[in-house]
Design a protein around this nucleic acid. Structure first.
Length: 569
DNA sequence: GAGTTTGAAACT
DNA sequence: CAGTTTCAAACTC
C-alpha cells in the first residue's frame, strides 16, 4: 500500500476530514478493473453488479443490485421529481429482500412505462458519503450529475473504505431506513386497501419545521406515516395526529376528513406505479400549505386538502394538540435508539481512535508489526481489541469484537480459581466417583432392591450406607484435615456453615450451601432416612459430610476470592 | 436556473 | 450527547 501522500492530489481540493482521511489513505485504484462505459446495461449481470455483491458480502450484507440505470427514464419528463421519488425507493434497499422487487418498482410504473431513478448531484462529498443517495442506497453513480465522483468501479477501494468508515460509525447506515414489506411493490398496491400503512422509518425523522408534510421528511418522502420512532416536532404525518383529527362523533366534515385520511394513508404507501402520486407531494409543498396546516391546529380550516386530491378542499374545524404524540415519541426515542443503534455509541466513542489507528498503520507500521507491538505492551484483552482495529479494519470487526468479549469473559474467573483449588476439587470428585463405583460393583443386588422401592436419591443414600469400608479407606486419609470443620450431626453441619459466616459474604452463598445440604439430606425419602439413621447410618453420614464439607470449603474459597476481586474492581 | 430552506449526515 | 457545520435534496421564485 502506498503512503497516503502519494494520492493527495487524487482528490479535489477540499480537504477531507476523518472519513476523508481514511478514504484518502487508500491507494489501490490502479488495481481495479478498467473503467467501464457508463452506457446503460439493460440486461445481464454487469461487473458492477458482481462487485456490489462482493462488497456487501464483505460487509456481511446481502447483495444489492444497482438501481436501474439512468437511461430508462428518458421517456419521462425530467421535471418530475416526485414521480422520481415515488417510483424509486429513496433509501437504501433492503439487503434481505430480492433486488428484483425494487428493480421492478423502479423500472416500471403501473402503466408499464419506465420511470426515472434518482440521480445525485453531489459536489463536495465525492459521492462517498451518505449525503449521496446513490451511495447510501448501495449503488454506484451512473449518469449522475455529480462532481468528482468516486462512487464507481474504478474507485472501488476508496468506496470500500468509505463504507467501512461509515459502518464503523453506524452499523445500520446501509440498512434500509424503511423496512421493506414482505411483498413487493405491486403487492403493496394490491394490498393497500387491506393494510394501507406498511412499514415505518426505522429510527424516525427529526423534522422541526415542515410538520413532516414535505419531502424533506424522510417518512413523508418514503410515503410512510411517522411513528413513535420519530423525534419530529409538530408532526402532521402521524397516526396519532390523524386520529385526533378524526375524532368520532364529529360533524359531517370530520367524517369526511376521516375518509380522506384513509385515502391519504393508502396513497402514502403506494410508493410505486402511480404517476398521480405527485398529487400527494403537491398538496404539501409550499409554505402556504404548511401555514394552513399550522392554522388548522388552532381551529382554522384547510388542512383537509392536504389529505385529499389537489382539487379538493374542505373545512377543518379542529384544534389539535400534538404534544401528547410528541411526548410519546420522545419517550420512545431512547427505546428506539437502543433498538436501532445498539452499539452505535460504542462505535462512535472509538471511531476517532480507530481511524487514527488505521491511518497510523498505513503510514508507519505494517499491520503484523503493529499487532506485535501492541501485544508486547498490553494485556490480552487490550491487544485483542487493538488487533481488531489493526489487522482487519475492513470487514471483520464483529469477529474481533466477539473475540474480545470472549477474552474479557474468561478473565473474570481467571484470577479466582487457582490451580491447587482445581486439583483439590478434582481429587475429591475422583475419590467420590471411585467409591461409588466400588459400591455399585459390590452391592449391585442390594442397590437394585432399593431402586425398585425408591427413587434415584434413595439409591444414592443406600450406596453410602451399604459400603462403609470404601469410604473409610479412601476418604478419611484425604479429608482428615477437614474433620475439624465438621461434626456428626446435621446441626453441626449447619453450625459449621453458620459459624463461618464471616467468610461467606453473600446470602446466595448461604443459600447455596444450605440448599446443597438440604438436597442431600432432605432429598431422601422417608424410607431412606430410616436406612440412613439405622445401625451404620451415622458413620456413612459422617463420611458424606466430610466430602461435602471439603467441597463446600472449595466453593467458599472461590467465593471469598471472587468477592475480594469484586471489591478491588 | 439561481437562490433559499430544510433536515440528514458529519463533525466537534 | 448536544451543538454546530456540511451537504445535497427539496423547494421557491
Amino acid at each position: 500500500m502506498s503512503p497516503p501522500n502519494a494520492i493527495i492530489n487524487f482528490f479535489p481540493p477540499k480537504p477531507s476530514k476523518l472519513v476523508g482521511k481514511a478514504i484518502d489513505s487508500v491507494t489501490d485504484k490502479s488495481s481495479f478493473p478498467p473503467k467501464p462505459t457508463k452506457s446503460v446495461e439493460k440486461s445481464g449481470v454487469s461487473p458492477e453488479k458482481l462487485l456490489m455483491q462482493l462488497v456487501f458480502t464483505k460487509f456481511g450484507l446481502s447483495p444489492v443490485i444497482k438501481m436501474p440505470s439512468t437511461k430508462l427514464s428518458l421517456s419521462l419528463s425530467p421535471a418530475k421529481p416526485y414521480t422520481t421519488l415515488h417510483s424509486s425507493f429513496p433509501f437504501p434497499l433492503s439487503k434481505q429482500e430480492s433486488p428484483t422487487s425494487h428493480q421492478q418498482a423502479d423500472v416500471k410504473t403501473n402503466n408499464g412505462a419506465p420511470t426515472d431513478r434518482k440521480h445525485c448531484r453531489c459536489k463536495q462529498s465525492r459521492c462517498l458519503k451518505l449525503y449521496c443517495e446513490c451511495f447510501a442506497a448501495g449503488g454506484y453513480c451512473d449518469g449522475c450529475n455529480c462532481n468528482c465522483c468516486r462512487n464507481n468501479v474504478e474507485n472501488e477501494g476508496l468506496r470500500k473504505v468509505a463504507m467501512e468508515s461509515i459502518l464503523e460509525r453506524n452499523p445500520n447506515a446501509f440498512r434500509p431506513k424503511i423496512p421493506p414489506s414482505p411483498s413487493n411493490a405491486q403487492d403493496i398496491v394490491d394490498d393497500a386497501k387491506d393494510s394501507p400503512m406498511v412499514g415505518k422509518h426505522n429510527w424516525g425523522c427529526r423534522c422541526k419545521k415542515t410538520g413532516c408534510l414535505k419531502n424533506y421528511c424522510e417518512c413523508f418522502h418514503a410515503k410512510v406515516l411517522c411513528s413513535k420512532n420519530c423525534k419530529c416536532v409538530d408532526c402532521k404525518n402521524s397516526e396519532e395526529y390523524h386520529e385526533k383529527v378524526a375524532l368520532p362523533g364529529r360533524d359531517h366534515n370530520s367524517t369526511k376528513i376521516c375518509n380522506n385520511y384513509e385515502e391519504y394513508k393508502k396513497s402514502m404507501v403506494v410508493s410505486s406505479g402511480d404517476n398521480n402520486n405527485t398529487n400527494i407531494s403537491k398538496n404539501f409543498e409550499g409554505s402556504k400549505e404548511r401555514e394552513a396546516i399550522t392554522n388548522a391546529d388552532h381551529g382554522e380550516p384547510n388542512i383537509c386538502k392536504h389529505f385529499e386530491g389537489r382539487d379538493e378542499a374542505m373545512a377543518y374545524p379542529t384544534r389539535v394538540n400534538n404534544q401528547a404524540s410528541i411526548c410519546i415519541k420522545q419517550a420512545n426515542a431512547a427505546t428506539s435508539a437502543a433498538i436501532g443503534f445498539s452499539g452505535s455509541s460504542i462505535v462512535q466513542a472509538s471511531r476517532k481512535r480507530k481511524l487514527q489507528e488505521f491511518l497510523d498503520l498505513n503510514e508507519k507500521d505494517p499491520p503484523i508489526q503493529k499487532l506485535k507491538n501492541h501485544q508486547e505492551v498490553n494485556t490480552l484483552r487490550v491487544s485483542s481489541s487493538l488487533s481488531a482495529l489493526s489487522v482487519d479494519p475492513i470487514g471483520n470487526a464483529s469477529i474481533q469484537k466477539s473475540k474480545e468479549f470472549q477474552c474479557s469473559a474468561r478473565s473474570s474467573f481467571a484470577d479466582i480459581i487457582q490451580e491447587q483449588d482445581v486439583e483439590q476439587l478434582c481429587s475429591l470428585l475422583v475419590l467420590a466417583s471411585e467409591a461409588a463405583k466400588k459400591v455399585l460393583d459390590k452391592n449391585g443386588n442390594q442397590a437394585v432392591k432399593i431402586q425398585t422401592a425408591n427413587t434415584a436419591e434413595v439409591q444414592n443414600s443406600k450406596i453410602f450406607q451399604e459400603e462403609p469400608n470404601v469410604h473409610e479407606e479412601t476418604l478419611d486419609d484425604h479429608l482428615s484435615e477437614n474433620e475439624a470443620d465438621t461434626t456428626n450431626t446435621d446441626n453441626h453441619i449447619s453450625g459449621g456453615i453458620e459459624g463461618k459466616e464471616g467468610r461467606l459474604s453473600s446470602p446466595g452463598t448461604l443459600a447455596l450451601t444450605s440448599n446443597a445440604k438440604d438436597e442431600l439430606i432432605m432429598g431422601a425419602t422417608k424410607q431412606d432416612q430410616i436406612l440412613i439413621h439405622g445401625c451404620n447410618g451415622d458413620v456413612y453420614l459422617e463420611q458424606e459430610r466430610l466430602v461435602l464439607a471439603s467441597f463446600r470449603d472449595c466453593l467458599k474459597k472461590i467465593i471469598v476470592l471472587g468477592n475480594m476481586k469484586g471489591e478491588i474492581l
